[in-house]
Structure formats: structure tokens, C-alpha cells
Write a protein that binds this DNA or RNA. Sequence first.
DNA 1: CAGTTAATTAACCACTCTGGAAAGTACGAG
DNA 2: CTCGTACTTTCCAGAGTGGTTAATTAACTG
Lengths: 113, 113
Amino acid sequence: MPVRGDQLTATFAALADPTRRAILARLAHGEATVGQLAEPFDVTLPAISKHVKVLQKAGLVEQTRQAQWRSCRLRPEPLRDVVTWMTQYREFLGESFDRLDRYLTDLQKGDRP
Amino acid sequence: MPVRGDQLTATFAALADPTRRAILARLAHGEATVGQLAEPFDVTLPAISKHVKVLQKAGLVEQTRQAQWRSCRLRPEPLRDVVTWMTQYREFLGESFDRLDRYLTDLQKGDRP
DNA sequence: CAGTTAATTAACCACTCTGGAAAGTACGAG
DNA sequence: CTCGTACTTTCCAGAGTGGTTAATTAACTG
């Protein structure tokens, strides 16, 4: 019954690729066409197209069509599912801070990464 | 800037498997041998052994040897790296991320050793 | 010593994933 | 309708994954 579990698997699998994470980072700054997403990378357009498809199936990216361009936009839900999944390790993560606590504290003071 | 790009890839790849996530959930409750980890699953011991090896390479699990038993323990660092990586999507995630963020920050303020 | 237990390694099989090249699709312009 | 643009899909090779069984290593036990 947990279709949600499969969703998590698809999300983690999608994130387990540096090119796809870079695509997501690019989309965090705004929408982009597949061609624009491909520019920074040293791979062919079909390869990027396939990466986008993987991200789409994981629900991380939404594609809207206008003329012959496909505009890609980041969807937050799967990342929220990851956060939800991680909450079961909250206490464990809290046991021994060294880096994250400082990072998050700096974030609260107003610094941006 | 990524903490350890390859490390993050290995972590996400390790998490992209339901059996391995179940092993982690089991280890969140305490140490266990490979045999104990294998019990709930309908797969052979070698299969679990390989899963543990993947988790080890991702730094999520530490194995200590005592006699003929290998005791497995959860390591928090890679999960913290995931949280750190996710902070770049803070604005997309909104409340759900802020809740985890706040929890970790509050924990730091309250748990002064 | 041989035997048992715990776990890994080896060998193998069936997929799946990622890449490139090439062909196909869809739309707008002329 | 034809051409160019912007992808997507198909096909293929090579690498990797997840599972099996069988063999191997390692440590304790009688």
C-alpha cells in the first residue's frame, strides 16, 4: 500500500546523480528550457532530456509546453517527503553536532549560503 | 558549494533502496549484527551483507568486529550532509523544512553539555 | 583437531542505468 | 508545404545493481 515508499525510492534515485542535482540547483534559480539546462554540461541534449525525464518521474520537475520549448520548473513535494523521512533520525542527528548546528545557527542570524 | 560531491552521490544512491532504508531504520533503534539485520527480510544473508557494504561505503554504517559477529552502528554524518545540501532549497520547502531546522537549532540551544 | 556459527567473497544471471548516434515528433516561420 | 528549431524517442553498448548458490574466511567450541 505505501505508494509513498516507491516515491521516496524514485526521489533518492533521482538525486543520486551529480548532473541531476546540478539541474535542480539551476532550476532553484528559476525556470529553464531543456536546451538551457543542457548548456553547462558536456553531454548531448538527449542525455539531458533523459535526466529531466527521471526528475519528472520522481515529481521533482514539472514541464510545461509553450510552442516548441519545454519549460522546466522545480516542484518541492518530493524534497519535503525527504525531510519528512529524515525526521525519524532527528534525535540521532541531534546526538552529536559539529557542523550542521553551526551552519543552521548562521542561517538564523541572516547569512545565506 | 557541495560538502563532498561524491559522498553525497553515494549517500543518495544508498538511500535509493527500500531494504537499505529499512536497515537504517532498524539501526536507529540500536546496534545489530548482520544476521539480526537480515531476519525481517525475505532475502539471503549475502544480499543483506552487500546492502550493508553499500551503506558502509556511503559512511552511513560502521561495522565493529567482536569474535565472529560484526556489529553494525548508524553514523549520522551523511544524513547531516543531506540536510546541509537541502538548505539550498529552503525557500521551496517552506514550513516542513523550517520545522526540522528549528528542531535542530532548539536542540542545540537547550542541550548544553 | 574437527565442527559450528557468522559473515564475506566468488561466480553467475537478469535486469536497469547512462551515455551516444540517429531517427522521429511538434511547432513556427516563410 | 518545406525548412529549421527544440526536443524526444529508439536502439545499442557498456557498466552497475540485486539477487541467487556455493565456496571461503574467521573465530569460538567440544
